[in-house]
Write a protein that binds this DNA or RNA. Structure first.
Length: 256
DNA sequence: TCCCAGGCGATCT
DNA sequence: AGATCGCATGGG
């Protein structure tokens, strides 16, 4: 019950710095932290003992209620999505890291996003022994322009620089943003170049625990068009719509 | 080689 | 407000 499936979570498109190392071993990197988990061991016990990772893996939320709601509604596609996505959890990630990661994500494939982010970390992040921390706003704001150009950011480069500038110079306070309501938060994030509705919703869902937000990307559009005849199927899940979106995203990609 | 990727900003009607 | 269009680059 209420399992945590590391493999599915790594592949769920919400985290770009998580890796399947093989043999049931998975690595997750967040900010300047790293955890390596072996699913053959009691991972739940291990995570529960650590304040940061317990919060990160969202262990205290009941993810089974949403399946019940899909069943009550007779929502067949979402029932299948819940079944396929069981064990995926919405990771509580860092706002700055999500901001940069999802600016990069636009019109890029997930493997290409990973490549760009890893280059950024390796070139500008602080070395932590076996890995590199995600670069801070200061590190990106002061980044060498020629080195930045080697990260495959394309036209998104100016967006990244705008984000680094606004956050480093405190025009935008990402920690203070936790106090804002959903609409205020979305508007604040969209002051940054390269942040539109979709990227803002990703940041809100994956960093600010705004579970009602549904990032509408190419896959979600396809679900709406192909499986619901053009009628948006997520809002009826209310405060859990973002979780359902994540299951549906995972499911749709898996059957494509 | 060709096609498209977890969209967005600019520029129109 | 809503519809179109160009966009840099890397994977498959």
């Amino acid at each position: 019950m209420n399992e945590l499936d590391l493999k599915k979570t790594v592949d769920s498109g919400q985290i770009f710095r998580a890796y399947d190392l093989g043999n049931g071993v998975f690595e997750f990197i967040s900010r300047d932290r790293r955890i390596v988990l072996d699913e053959k061991e009691n991972i739940r016990e291990r995570i529960e003992g650590d304040r940061y990772w317990r919060c990160y893996f969202d262990l205290d939320r009941d993810y089974e209620l949403i399946m019940k709601k899909a069943s009550e509604l007779g929502d067949e596609f979402m029932i299948s999505a819940c079944r396929a996505g069981a064990g995926i959890r919405i990771l509580k990630q860092d706002p700055w890291e999500m901001l940069i990661s999802f600016i990069i994500s636009q019109r890029k494939s997930i493997p290409a996003i990973r490549t760009s982010i890893e280059r950024l970390c390796k070139l500008f992040g602080t070395e932590k022994g076996e890995f590199y921390a995600f670069p801070t706003p200061e590190q990106l704001y002061g980044a060498n322009a020629d080195m930045l150009k080697t990260c495959g950011l394309g036209y998104r480069l100016e967006y990244i620089l705008d984000a680094a500038k606004k956050v480093y110079l405190k025009e935008i306070d990402l920690e203070g943003c936790f106090l804002l309501n959903d609409e205020e938060l979305a508007n604040e994030l969209k002051k940054i170049k390269g942040v539109g509705d979709k990227v803002a919703n990703c940041i809100m869902l994956f960093a600010y625990s705004r579970f009602s937000r549904v990032p509408v990307d190419t896959w979600v559009k396809r679900i709406t068009d192909e499986d619901y005849g053009g009628k948006e199927p997520f809002s009826k899940y209310g405060e859990d719509a973002g979780i359902m979106q994540q299951y549906a995203f995972y499911y749709k990609r898996s059957v494509d």
